[in-house]
Design a binder for these strands. Structure first.
Lengths: 161, 161
DNA sequence: ATAAATACCGAATGAAATTCGGTGAAAACG
DNA sequence: CGTTTTCACCGAATTTCATTCGGTATTTAT
């Protein structure tokens, strides 16, 4: 087993766990994960196998959580994006709230600080469906009230880069 | 050139522009875009070339906007997720707001209905960086005020499926 | 100083994407 | 209706790419 060391690596990977090339790779993949290793490697001055090994490590170590296709909300029949603030009495409503994960219209669930307890991001087919969802939320024990913010235009929407 | 017709297709693709197999493919890709066409095809009863053609069409027609890797916010040094509501006087602040797209910490910008005008989703390295961002926002002409909601826990975070 | 670990490369291999006719069924047309 | 066109599919062939495999140089630990 390797012994402890108190010295930091001089070059390459530091405390963050990745070096500059890793960082650039992550950025490239976050923008477009369909490019070939050879292609990205040329941009970053690495051979395809070298890129492959780095990406494999970045996945194994959890820097890359998943690789997915981003769908167009409107095209798939859910043009109505909104954020819903949910106020609850105490934290008892947290667990039933997680059940909303089952609904595919619900994209995000966060507990937050501030003048509300939970923020939901949802994408609905229309106002009727949104109203139904709100009804369902109010049925949850401990829900005091909600405020809804319907998106008019989306100027930017992306993941961490 | 084909003449007009007033009849809908009986089976297969309808007004939505995709059929059941397309829909399933989209769901699969939104969850994991690394699977092979052969693999997904087996699940959906299609040959690899058939899957390939469908995916190509779904991309061309805009159902699939992009294929990207999702990075871990904490791992890449941005553990502080928050939503910022921005109130403005009139809509003059909209354009300068779009300039925030340049900052890679800013992930979403929406104009919304409700008791605020704009909602930002941002992921910051820490509280200091968040304060700096707020200072920058307040410097924008027409910004009346902001409210910030810092995420404590994220129970769900995904794209449209 | 020496041993161990790491990151890289070029070459070889394997798997997957992509291309290419060919077929059958449905839709459009007259 | 019968005919033509379009469409989605398949199996086989091809090509591109991911992946594996030594081998080397550099760095890190002992």
């Amino acid at each position: 087993m390797p012994k402890e060391t108190n010295r930091l690596r001089e070059n390459g990977r530091t405390k963050a766990g990745f070096d500059e090339k890793d960082r650039m790779l992550l950025r490239l993949l976050a923008q477009d994960a369909t490019r070939s290793y050879a292609d990205m490697g040329a941009q970053i001055h690495l051979s395809p196998p070298a890129v492959h090994e780095r990406v494999k490590r970045l996945k194994r170590d959890g820097y890359i959580r998943a690789t997915v296709s981003l769908l167009d909300g409107e095209k798939i029949g859910r043009p109505l994006l909104s954020f819903i603030h949910v106020d609850t009495t105490g934290w008892g409503a947290k667990s039933p709230m997680r059940a909303l994960s089952e609904l595919e219209e619900v994209e995000e669930i966060h507990t937050v600080t501030g003048d509300t307890c939970v923020i939901l991001k949802v994408r609905m087919p229309g106002t009727q469906a949104l109203e139904d969802l709100l009804a369902r939320i109010y049925r949850i024990e401990g829900v005091k009230g909600t405020r809804s913010y319907v998106a008019l235009s989306t100027y930017l929407e992306r993941g961490p880069t």
